[in-house]
Design a protein around this nucleic acid. Sequence first.
RNA 1: GCCCCCAUCGUCUAGAGGCCUAGGACAACACCCUUUCACGGUGUAGACAGCGAUUCGAAUUCGCUUGGGGGUACCA
Length: 489
Amino acid sequence: MIDEKVRVRIAPSPSGNLHIGTARTALFNFLFAKKNHGKFILRIEDTDAERTSQEYVDNIFDSLKALGLNWDEGPDVGGNYGPYTQSQRFDIYPKYVQELLDKGFAYECFCTPEELEAEKELATKNKQAYVYSKKCENLTEEDKEKLRKEGRKPAIRFNIAKAQKAFHNSSILEFDDLVKGKLHVDTNLIGDFVIMKSNGSPTYNFAVVIDDALMEISHVIRGEDHISNTYKQILIFEALGFKVPKFGHLGMILAPDRSKLSKRHGATAVSDFVKEGYLTEALINFVALLGWAPSDGEEIKPVDKIAEDFRIGEISSSNSIFEYDKLKWMNGQYINKMDLAKLTDLALPFLNMYDLNKYTRKQLEKIIEITREPITLLKDLVYDTQYFFEKPDYTEVKELLNSDLSKDVLDKFTEEVKTYDFNNSEELHNKLADFRAYFKEQKGYKPKETMWAIRAAVTGRTRGADMVAILELLGKDETIARIEASRKI
RNA sequence: GCCCCCAUCGUCUAGAGGCCUAGGACAACACCCUUUCACGGUGUAGACAGCGAUUCGAAUUCGCUUGGGGGUACCA
């Protein structure tokens, strides 16, 4: 149990729709906050105006909400530490840049992109690690004045060595990661990085620190791609006299081919998954299992139950591969357990190519109820419910319908069905059972063979929902019409 | 190139020196149930990357190798 005031955040950059990996990071932050009675904060990091768009901001909001990851503070709900959108915080950064400049932990750099590029090329040529040369570190006022007259605008760089020396004994910087344990790096290998661009906007590593410090973030839980940033950030926290938060780095989610999960692997954004018919409940549950395991072995459980059982130190520190098989299985589980009315609401939009007015709401719910079982995605419903809305297509079952067995069965069924009461499902069920039994005894036809013939005639399929329910939904007239149609092919 | 992280069945994982002839889940396969598909049930197959070291004893500790991932921007 962590006793101090817990404040965690998710800080997505709106340069794309909410990625499933970001959703997982958000989830773990959310779980950590819930478990420790802390606050979960949403901050939008839109410093890079070039790649940012409002559409993505909206997508992030909607996706997080759909997943049930509600935030306590954020751009829309506000809070005492706002604004929660980085671009609206631009006026607060210069003050801290100046402080770093004054303390000697930062300096102006007039290097041009070309000069920097040359340095890098030289390092590569000599097979050396590239580290910024610090050639602007000791520029005199005259030098700077001269450069400024040339029209050069300086960027501000952070002085790694100076900060390291001020707060640590050696050049090795170490921190205790919440999930990975002790992590370290030799700060000599970190170049003096830019904290404020020459155009006056802060860079990511600088803005995060200021924001996290001012928002009093206690624990930073994020992907391990940020480990190398952590060292830079720790040094800034220290140089500014801020309390350094605890860090926890999660393994990454990889595609089945072990590369970064990207668009070519299919859906990557939460909204893409939803469009394919994944339930947000299943998505969030599945993603929780990537790197974390429930103590009771019960894998299917809602987020609030997961939160009770969550311990950050038990998260796996390795990467995990995103396999769709288990997600699909889990989605199927959720589809079958979900409240029918709710599921119908979610399913109907997927069926908008059909004339839904053919049926009452009650009947539509019935259709969903009897077709939900074998599906793993909501969009599977399109195919599986087709014969309720359209005339059957017999091409797949032509051979079956023309078999002697089918002819026998349908000869008799055509006559018998006229006597059935379609408004009495129990009777219908019994009549069909008798019908199967009759052919079993008389001809030795297997029950399923008898049913195949009927199913094929009525739906054009050999697989599908419960026949009794199908017959009821279709009604006597339509059933008879379909059987007659099937006999003419 | 350099730096960092990681390493149990195909995949997600349990496992924190003897409970492990390594457990579960998904996927696969077989059988049962059954009006089909599915669900469910039962079962089969399937892993401690390799090599050293420590120890009476190692999946669990240490080192090396290999493999995978990440970082190396005036992107976030």
